[in-house]
Design a protein around this nucleic acid. Structure first.
Lengths: 344, 344
DNA sequence: CTCCTTGTCCGAAACGCTTTGGATGGGCGA
DNA sequence: TCGCCCATCCAAAGCGTTTCGGACAAGGAG
């Protein structure tokens, strides 16, 4: 069933039918109703490919996700991010076009999306310093929003979480509990977000004239959480600021294996991406956490992008989202502090 | 830069240029080379929207993924599955169109994809008994492949893992180690794969005239793994067959909290979806596991679907993939068996 | 030398929609 | 009554490809 056929059935021109369905004003309400009914009755749905070609709008947003053998970090975040963005697209009638490529062909994937004109806009994940993709997109004039931040952010829209402040808060919380040997179990510091987290942790420690020396970073796996914590416990750590839920599970294992009790002998605060499959619920939740919703970030990125697609000349949007500290069972007053404070 | 412009530049007709680029035989090698060079020089890329409209092929495959608040199972599997499928699409020049919708609008999303003709084929996840989506797709004549199995499989292509056999193998392994109180920590049994896993576990136990009574099922979270195992340890379980890595982490925590040693006092075999961010490596790996690659499943589904898109009338493909048992540190000879065997 | 292939290439018609630029007729003010 | 405006509708021209049906010359068979 095509638009032309439907028009024939109704004794109208394709023009009028198209306008009636598209919500344009130059159609009488009566006609519009008749058209809508006929369309529903015959199960007519506009062919998006044709509409895209004629209108110049693809009604689709592109996402490039990379599959890397070594980097265990990206995947889990993507699922929830895409879920959030997808909700927004669906509500606005947009499709989501994904390009899944190995890391080394990422830039080519963006180039392809741009020149094939198969999307109206793009979301760019995890920008690197001096990212070539940004240049590509700006040259092509294709709207885009960056999820995360590169050092030179300023020429484009972006949405990010306040990583520095989050880890400042987490570390301050542990300091307030009386801890002084606070370790940082971090994600790979080549990533912007990880370096910001380290900065927050460092700031908090230095503000109290403590050394920021207990730190390890690497792919955010349970195994790394375990391995890092195990070593750091030997080095005298009594508290941990941890970059992800998965790593926190590893830290907990190390703590338990050492015969210590979480929230009593050792405190842990983790950054919680609130991945839906790794939820950290309960009352109190098992882990004290800095909560950030990747899903909400996905939603917000999509909203900003769609606004940019609708009106490319609006003011630049750069949002940095704060996160809340949610107290859980994994953090408590330092043992050392109560003992030593009296003796010191 | 359009095809027509490029043709003008070369002094050729659009027809010839299109054919030269498309690899059709009725173009001389000399012309073809000239066209290719000019296209590269001017950075020409065909407009996919126009090509799709003219050729009737969208060069895109649709995936519907659901975002459910309660179901914690689907998400993590999707990420890796999509990565696998995406590789295949990219290699074949196909795009991946995703529709992310709440569970209750899933069927509508399929209907939309079908009637908007924006894709050449669809992958259908986790079919339910008497799934309406199957009917929709068959009526519309849109090629599709099912990932997983519904009870009435037989009228369409599908790719699945041998869940029953996997858990039969896992349970047999534990039995061979001398365990007799073997618990099953399962995913929600409303899902086909979970009910098949239970069947495998049951078969193994009944073959040795043991009661298949130690079983709990629910969303595959770490918390559930912990809660289930904690209870089952009290009920006398000395070994566990576990439905996912995440649940296995929970089981391990329960075991450690009970002051027991994994692989010594208690044995665990888990089903490992090999999600890239939850990798289970090491030598020996920490967990004995039945290994199945979701990524490979994604790849295979995509291959089968593309074949079906190319030739809709080929023989039906139904593949059930076997999984290997990979020995790790979490399983070992039963203590009870060595003690009791001599006394019994 | 004619006729039929074969190898290359071209013109023009789709594909199904959007959109521009009228056309038509009724209602209004003067 | 005339002229103008507005509401409503339509015809036709694209959008950038693919593809069907030739056209034309060169070469081989008869």
């Amino acid at each position: 069933m095509t638009l032309k056929e439907l028009a024939g059935l109704l004794g109208l021109s394709p023009t009028t039918v198209s306008r009636a369905l598209g919500g344009y004003p130059e159609v009488s309400e009566e006609t519009r109703r008749a058209v809508r009914e006929a369309a529903a009755a015959h199960g007519y749905r506009p062919n998006r490919r044709a509409a895209a070609l004629a209108s110049g709008r693809a009604m689709a947003i592109g996402h490039v996700i990379t599959t890397s053998e070594t980097d265990e970090l990206v995947n889990p975040v993507f699922a929830d991010f895409l879920a959030g963005a997808g909700e927004v697209y669906a509500a606005a009638g947009y499709d989501m076009l994904m390009s899944v490529v190995p890391e080394d062909r990422e830039d080519a994937a963006y180039a392809q999306m741009i020149s094939a004109r198969s999307v109206d806009g793009v979301i760019l994940h995890g920008p690197r310093p001096g990212d070539p993709r940004v240049g590509l997109l700006q040259e092509a004039g294709l709207p885009f929003v960056v999820h995360g931040r590169a050092p030179e952010t300023g020429s484009h829209d972006f949405v990010d979480v306040a990583n520095t402040r989050a880890f400042r808060t987490a570390t301050d919380h542990l300091l307030d509990l009386g801890h002084s040997r606070i370790a940082l179990v971090n994600g790979p510091e080549a990533f912007d977000f990880a370096s910001r987290r380290r900065r927050g942790w460092t700031e908090a420690l230095e503000a109290r004239h403590l050394a920021a020396d207990l730190v390890r970073d690497g792919p955010m796996s349970e195994g790394n959480g375990y391995a890092f914590a195990r070593q750091m416990l030997r080095d005298g750590a009594t508290a941990f600021a941890v970059a992800s839920h998965l790593m926190a599970l590893g830290v907990r294992r190390a703590v338990q294996e050492a015969g210590l009790t979480l929230g009593d002998d050792v405190s842990v605060v983790m950054f919680d991406d609130e991945l839906s499959y790794l939820r950290n619920d309960g009352d109190p939740p098992p882990f004290t956490a800095i909560r950030s919703s990747v899903r909400a970030a996905g939603r917000r990125c999509a909203e900003v992008l769609l606004a940019r697609v609708a009106g490319p000349d609006g003011a630049l949007i750069g949002e940095v989202w704060d996160c809340d500290l949610v107290l859980g069972a994994s953090s408590g007053p330092s043992r050392n502090s109560s003992r030593r404070k009296t003796s010191a």
